[in-house]
Amino acid sequence: MKISAFWVVVVAIFVGGLVLTEVVDNEYYFTALYVILQATIMAIAWNILGGFTGYVNFGSAAFFAVGAYTSIALNKSLGLPLPLLIAAAAIVCGLIGLGVGYLTLRLKGVYFAIATLAMAIVFETLITNWAYVGGARGAYILTPETFLWFKSYIQMVFIVMLMLALTAVAISRMLNSSRIGRGLAAIRDDEVAAECAGVPTLRLKLISTTVMGALMGVAGAPYPFFVTFVDPVSAFNLFIAVNAIAMPMIGGTAHWLGPVIGALLVGTTQEIITVNVSSELNILLVGIMLVLFITLAPQGIVGLWLKYWRRRKK
C-alpha cells in the first residue's frame, strides 16, 4: 500500500508541474523553482553518501561543475541534445566519484572528506586552464530555439529538472529502504562490525560515491542552458557545496525525506530572502542555520518530528 502511495504522490507532483506551465506565465516562478529543484537533487545526492553512509563530501560543487562543463564541452563539440548531455554528465561524474572513492575510501573517513576538498580545487584549476570551454573567461551557451509544446525554454528545463528531482527522490528512497540501504547504515554505525556481519563495505561505499557523483553531475548538466553563461567561479561556487551539506543536515540525514524537506524549506526561504532582502544575508543565514542545527539538533527536522511523534504516542 505504501509503495503505491509514494508513486501516486510522485505522479501527482509531476502532473502539478505540467499544469503549472500551462497556467503560469511569469518566468520568475520557473527560475525560482528550477533553483530549488537543483538544490534538492544536490542535497539528495550528498545525503546518499553523507547521511546514509556517513562519509562527508565537501566537493559537491566540483561534481556539479564537472556536470555543467561536460554539457558545455559535448554540446559544443558534438551538438548533443539535453537528455544525452545529462546521461553523459551522470557517467563522467559517477566515474569521478568512483575514482576518488577508490583512492581514499580504504583510509579513515576524514581523508575522503579532505580529498574531496582537494578534488574540487584540482578540477577548478583544470577547467580554468581549459580554453576550449572558455577557461577563466567563461562560456556563453545559446539556448535552443525549440522547446516542445512549452511556452518558453525556461519552462522546459523546469520540467526536465522536476523529472530529474523526482527520479533522485525515488533512487534515494529505494536505497534507503533496501538491503543496500541497511548495509550502508551498518557502515555508518560501525564499519568494522558491518564487515564482520558480511557487509562488503568497500563495494557498498563505492556504489554510494558513484551514485552521489552521478546525481550531482545530473544536477549540473542542464545548468549551462539555464543560466546561458558559465564561468569556473560561478560553477565551482562554495555556496553550492554549503547548500548540499546544509539542506540534509537541517532536514535530517538518516531518512530519505530529510534532504527533500531541508531543500524545499531552505531553498524556498533563500528565494524569499534573496528577493526581499539581499543575497549576502541569505548566504550568511544558511551558514548560521547549518551550524545551529548540527550543534543543537543533529537529527534535523525529521529527527525532531519523530521525537515529538514518539512522545505524543506515549
Binding site: 544558511v286 547549518l290 548540527i294
Partner: peptide, 12 residues
C-alpha cells in the same frame, strides 16, 4: 559527520 560539517559551516 557533524563535527566536519560544523567546521565547514564555521568556515563559511
Amino acid at each position: 559527520l557533524s563535527g566536519l560539517a560544523f567546521f565547514f559551516g564555521v568556515m563559511f
